[in-house]
Design a protein around this nucleic acid. Structure first.
Lengths: 176, 176
DNA sequence: ATCTGTGCAAATAGTTTGCAGCTGG
DNA sequence: CCAGCTGCAAACTATTTGCACAGAT
């Protein structure tokens, strides 16, 4: 596979090696459904299920390296753990997250990425990742008396809506 | 003070009480220099230095509540801990963070907030916080062979520059 | 009177690290 | 063959929680 060669080149370029473990991790992210993020823990479980033994520390170590290199992006949404996804221009997107039910809506918006690039270049820096994150509350939770709502109350909105509303030429999709 | 009344009203409205501890925390954030964030730990230390005994758990508990209510915003930048700052429209800003030296540049950009509001309203949600975060690397670190750079190497760029470059009508200032 | 808040100490969860042996370039 | 990588177990750090008591409305 071509992407694999590129990965190897990128790694070697920085003095890192292409190990079977790194290959596997990269592969999982490449075949991951759009809009899915993995935590270190869930990635590890996925690997174990696949019959690929790999230690959790190795997972952590490699997620870190691949994030540093800009291969993956690390997103901190509502949950306690960090989540990871491939960091490519074509799949680049942002997140709306409900602070009560923790559901996530992804959306694309190129003008925001452009704005980010401009801002970064103006300061003579190089962009590694650009994250636009909107913390929101759903009207249903507000009716329930949020923020006093019980922590496990789940907003019905996202479980019934299959696709979030799109805005202009921007495309939105519902996230797991 | 007027802000204090507003705080009390907001809290009572949700069934929370205005305790001396909450007042103190709010006060600290109000008098905090622009561009400064506090972690739970550093806020606690600040309180202790001031001679205000308060348990760390109380700090954590109240930071959480005040973030939920939109009084504070929780930012996850390069560090391991979460940091907090007041969440007001007039002070609303975004962050550029260097992934090597962890220095932060703040910048204002109203069009981004507008974009966020539009996006959120289109989905029938209510905005609590809007964060635009750019992860970048400084050219100096790249020259040093980043990402293989040692973890405590500090980019000289930010320590010498007193004010980051501004972009258009947007205003930039150097952080903490 | 009741319900929320606090301090303390203990618990937890996510992540990191030291070390001895293994492996890719 | 050598610097980087892995697995394991132990360590660590930020944050959360249970409980008994105190305080506000």
């Amino acid at each position: 596979m071509d992407n694999l060669k590129a990965l190897k080149a990128k790694l070697n370029d920085q003095g890192y090696k292409l190990t079977p473990q790194r290959q596997l991790i990269f592969d999982i992210f490449q075949t991951l459904a759009t809009g899915k993020h993995l935590s270190a823990e869930s990635l590890h479980m996925l690997l174990v299920e696949r019959g690929e033994g790999m230690s959790l520390s190795t997972v952590y170590r490699n997620l870190k390296i691949m994030t540093k290199m800009g291969i993956l992006r690390e997103v901190e949404l509502a949950q306690a753990q960090k989540h990871y996804e491939l960091n490519t221009i074509s799949t680049h997107h942002h997140h709306i997250v409900c602070v009560q039910c923790h559901q996530i809506i992804e959306f694309k918006n190129n003008s925001i990425l452009q704005e980010g690039l401009k801002q970064v270049e103006t300061n003579g820096l190089q962009l590694i990742d650009c994250q636009f994150t909107l913390h929101t509350i759903c009207p249903e939770a507000l009716e329930m008396g949020w923020p006093t709502t019980s922590s496990n109350w789940v907003c019905p909105r996202f479980t019934t809506v299959s696709k979030a509303k799109s805005l202009g030429n921007q495309q939105l999709k519902l996230e797991n």
